[in-house]
Design a protein around this nucleic acid. Structure first.
Lengths: 254, 254
DNA sequence: CAGTGGTCTAGACCACACT
DNA sequence: GTGTGGTCTAGACCACTGG
C-alpha cells in the first residue's frame, strides 16, 4: 500500500502505533469496502491488475482482499468480465455477536436488568455442553435485556465457575462479553446455535411484557474459543413481535 | 495432486470426464476434509510445507484448501503452532439450500403435495422484491412439504412468469430448483432470508396438522443469481415442533 | 480477438509458539 | 533456536466474457 519506495523511514503513517501494523490485504479490504459502498450497484471495479498498480501491492494481495469482500457479499465477480459492486447489502452474513452488538447494529439502545446471578451445580445438560462434571460449579447470570428501554429478550448465561473467579462481585450491567474478554481472557470466536420457535409460558411472558402463549424465538448457543473448546452456554428468548433475523446466505462449495 | 510425474497419460482417475477437471485446491480440500473428519479432535495435521510435498502442489495451493476448511470450521489454525482438526462439527454453516436438500441433510425423506399452481399479478410487495412492475405476471406455486410423510412446511414460491414459460405444465412434484436450474438456467447462488417466529392461523394450522395458535418459523427468502438479481421469492411456514435451525457462526472480520 | 478473473508456482521474509 | 503459520511478491498460464 503506502509508497513502493524501499524505505522512507516511515512505513506507518498518520499517528499509527508502529507495532499495530495491520496486513496490507486487511487495510486494502477496508479501503475497497468503503469505496464500493459509495458506488452504485453493478458498477465495475478497476481490474485486479489495475488495483495492484494503484495501491502498490501484488495482484495476490488484491485478490486476498477481494476474496473477503466477495465472501461477505459486498462485491461479486464474473469470470472473464470483471468485479462489480453488489446490490446494497440489507442483510449481513450471520456472525457471532453479543446482544449489545446486535442491538447497536439495529440502531437500538441496549439495556439490562439483572434477574439473578449465582453459582450452582452444572447439571447434566450444561455439564455435557461445557465438558464439565455434573456437579462442577457454574456461574449463572439471568438478565432481562432491553432495547430502547423495552423488554426484548430473556437471557441466561452459564459459565464454568473455575474460569471466572470473582465474576459475581463485578458490575454485570456492562457487556458481559467485554468483561470475559478483558478480565478473563476468554475469546469467543465460534458458536453453535440452535434456533427454535416457541410459545411463551406465563412466567417468561410476564417478564417480557406480552400475553402468555405469544410466539418467541428461542436460541441456545454454545460459545467456543479458536480451538473449539466450549466456554459458555447461553439461552435467549426473544419477543417475536420485536425481533426478526435477517441473514444473507450463499450456496456452499461442492 | 496425483503423481508429480510429468504425464502418466491419466491425470483424471476413476471415470472422471476429462473436461471436468476441478482445480487442485478444490480436490485437495475434499481429500483433506475426508481425512480430518476421521481424525480425533485437536490432532495436528501435517504442516503446510509437508502437505505441499505430499500432494505435489505448492504451499499456496495447500493454504487455499486449508483456508476454506478453516472458514467452515473443519480445522483451526494456531499461528506458530500448527493446523488442527476441530471438534466434530455438529452444525454446518448456514448455506442456501432447497427444502429437498435440507430434509435429506437431516436424514428425512422429503415429500410434496401441490396445493395451488397458477399465474397472477405480482402485486406490490412481490413486484418490489423481484424488481418487476406491479401488474407483471408471476407464477405462484403453493406446496405442502412433507418429511417422512408428515407435514413439515407450507411453502409458497413466486417466480417471474416471463422467466419460466411452460413451468405450470411440468411435473412440480420434483425438486422445483432442479427444474429451474436445468430447464431455465436459473442459478440461485445467494439469498436474503428473514426469519420470524409466529403463531399459526387456523387455515395454516389445519394444513400442517397442528392446533391453531401453535408456534411456527416463518422464513421469507429472496433468491438471487451471482449478480444479485432476484429470481424468486419464497415464504415458508415450518412447524416449530418438528423443525429447528442449527447454525455454526464465527466472529466476523474487524 | 483482447482483456478479465482463476489457478498455480517458487521463493522470501515476518510473527508467533514451544522448548 | 527451531519450526510453524501469516504475508507478500513476480510471473506464468488457463478459462471465460464479450465485442
Amino acid at each position: 500500500m503506502n509508497e513502493t519506495a524501499p524505505s522512507t523511514s516511515s512505513d506507518t503513517a498518520e499517528g499509527e502505533v508502529p507495532g499495530s501494523q495491520r496486513p496490507k490485504h486487511a487495510r486494502l479490504r477496508q479501503r475497497l469496502r468503503a469505496e464500493v459502498q459509495r458506488m452504485t450497484a453493478h458498477t465495475a471495479l478497476p481490474t485486479e491488475r489495475e488495483l495492484a498498480g494503484q495501491y502498490g501491492v501484488s495482484r495476490s494481495t488484491v485478490r486476498q482482499a477481494l476474496d473477503a469482500l466477495a465472501e461477505s457479499g459486498v462485491v461479486y465477480r464474473v469470470h472473464g468480465a470483471g468485479t462489480f459492486a453488489a446490490s446494497t447489502v440489507v442483510a449481513k452474513n450471520l456472525t457471532m455477536s453479543s446482544f449489545t452488538e446486535d442491538m447497536e447494529a439495529r440502531g437500538l439502545v441496549p439495556g439490562n436488568r439483572i434477574l439473578a446471578a449465582d453459582e450452582r451445580e452444572a447439571g447434566r445438560q450444561i455439564a455435557e455442553e461445557l465438558r464439565l462434571g455434573e456437579s462442577d460449579p457454574v456461574v449463572r447470570v439471568m438478565r432481562l435485556r432491553l432495547a430502547d428501554e423495552w423488554p426484548m429478550c430473556l437471557e441466561t448465561v452459564h459459565l464454568p465457575a473455575a474460569r471466572v473467579p470473582g465474576l459475581l462481585e463485578r458490575d454485570l450491567n456492562d457487556s458481559l462479553y467485554r468483561i470475559l474478554r478483558a478480565e478473563y481472557g476468554m475469546r469467543l470466536v465460534r458458536a453453535e446455535q440452535v434456533w427454535t420457535a416457541v410459545s411463551l409460558d406465563e412466567r417468561s411472558a410476564v417478564l417480557l411484557g406480552v400475553p402468555t402463549g405469544s410466539p418467541a424465538f428461542q436460541v441456545r448457543r454454545v460459545g467456543m474459543d479458536e480451538r473449539s473448546r466450549p466456554l459458555e452456554v447461553t439461552t435467549g428468548l426473544y419477543r417475536a413481535d420485536r425481533y426478526e433475523m435477517r441473514v444473507a446466505v450463499r450456496r456452499g462449495l461442492e
